[in-house]
């Protein structure tokens, strides 16, 4: 399987394992969408702002002495976006409902992060 196919498969698996999830994206750390099942018109913007949130999260963690960042989360009334660094070069963004099973999302996300790191690395 090519890297692209592996990432597409990983997204499908995540969606199957956690039906609550409403969108998954792997993007480069400079904000280019690499694989995604967000609607196309949202994809480019989510990749760019997701990478930006991750970069900003890292700086906040440095300035506030929070240690290494494991997750950046933006929570709204209608949903939340979880963003994870996957090594130096990539980010994984997952959108889920505000009242979903966050524990399960996080559990699956952590496994997915490791897989993305391996695929991109």
């Amino acid at each position: 399987m090519t890297k692209q196919e592996q990432l597409d498969q990983l997204i499908k698996d995540l969606r199957m394992n956690v039906p609550d999830i409403t969108g998954v994206m792997v993007a480069s750390s400079d904000g280019l969408s690499i694989a995604s099942d967000f609607p196309e018109e949202e994809g480019a913007r989510i990749a760019a702002v997701g990478a930006a949130a991750s970069g900003l999260g890292n700086r906040i963690a440095q300035n506030a002495s929070l240690g290494e960042v494991s997750e950046t989360m933006v929570k709204g009334n209608d949903g939340l976006l979880l963003i994870y660094m996957t090594g130096e070069e990539g980010v994984l963004a997952i959108r889920a409902p505000a009242k979903g099973n966050l524990g399960l999302v996080r559990l699956e996300a952590s496994g997915a992060c490791e897989s993305v790191k391996k695929i991109l690395g």
């Binding site: 400079d30 904000g31 480019a44 760019a48 990478a51 991750s54 999260g57 700086r59």
Partner: peptide, 15 residues
């Protein structure tokens, strides 16, 4: 200051 490199800023502008 904010962890947004030039390539990423370029991408934000492009959107």
């Amino acid at each position: 200051a904010a962890g947004l490199n030039e390539a990423l800023l370029g991408r934000l502008v492009a959107t």
